[in-house]
Design a protein around this nucleic acid. Structure first.
Lengths: 134, 134
DNA sequence: ACTAATGCAACCGCAAAGGTTACGTAAAAG
DNA sequence: CTTTTACGTAACCTTTGCGGTTGCATTAGT
């Protein structure tokens, strides 16, 4: 894995879980399947848990489970849960030094915001369940 | 500057050049204005030169100049010249290990390609000249 | 010749992200 | 009650990407 590995890992894992929703999976199981290690899995899936897409249980028979039905989880849900904006930078820190920079920034960030919304909208049209059925 | 610094630098520089197209600018001038250094400027603007957006001349009175009229250079031209796809990963190397991964990759990359095209199309609607006038 | 510019290669340093180890906590099994 | 098994999290290492920097060759005016 390289770029967008968190998104890849998340989607991949969710799709597998959708195929057998009753099974509880440990971080180790998931890590082995995804070719990474358990800590990374917990790190990433922890974000999905906070977003209400997964549940996790400690202890002997613990592990990860879907918190919703597969058809009720869209690709956009996952994308937003990870809080990684691919397009829009959200550079609120950038202070435009000159007027050209100001006009430019306004122009470009407007386009990027639009694209970002479009991206989320499109991802929202597909559920985890649908991906499996593809 | 942080993320997308190459794109920022390029657009910023082009916009300034559009304001006074006859003036030749050295890498040092540009670097000073942009808060970076000449080598970085030459690195980035070199890509724009290869794409036919700028010309550069060596020697005593050398420097950088627009290769086209400002109204004939769009934001998309610059974006494509830099060869940085923000959205589409183009992971041709990724070999899907399991069927779920395969379906998933196909699904997601389809959406991302669509978004990428949309991005370029939108950027293509604005020229450098227009940004200055904004 | 001398100067001033690009072109380019090589290296440094910083920051982001995944990988790894370690330890605390919780829950089931015995 | 102890052991086992799992998550949660912090700390650190390693890799990678990128801007910054230096150095040098090349080229074009003066």
């Amino acid at each position: 894995m390289k770029r967008n590995s968190r998104l890849s890992l998340s989607l991949h894992t969710l799709c597998h879980m959708a195929g057998n929703p009753d099974r509880v999976r440990t971080s180790s199981d998931i890590a082995e399947h995804a070719g990474t290690n358990p800590v990374v899995v917990r790190r990433v899936l922890g974000k999905l848990r906070k977003a209400g897409l997964l549940t996790s249980e400690k202890g002997h028979a613990g592990g990860w489970r879907l918190a919703r039905q597969p058809q009720d989880i869209t690709l956009a849900d996952v994308y937003l849960a990870l809080d990684e904006r691919m397009v829009a930078t959200g550079d609120t820190t950038e202070v435009p030094a000159c007027s050209v920079e100001h006009a430019l920034h306004k122009q470009v960030s407007g386009v990027l915001e639009e694209i970002e919304e479009n991206l989320v909208r499109k991802l929202g049209e597909t559920s985890i369940a649908e991906v499996r059925g593809t």
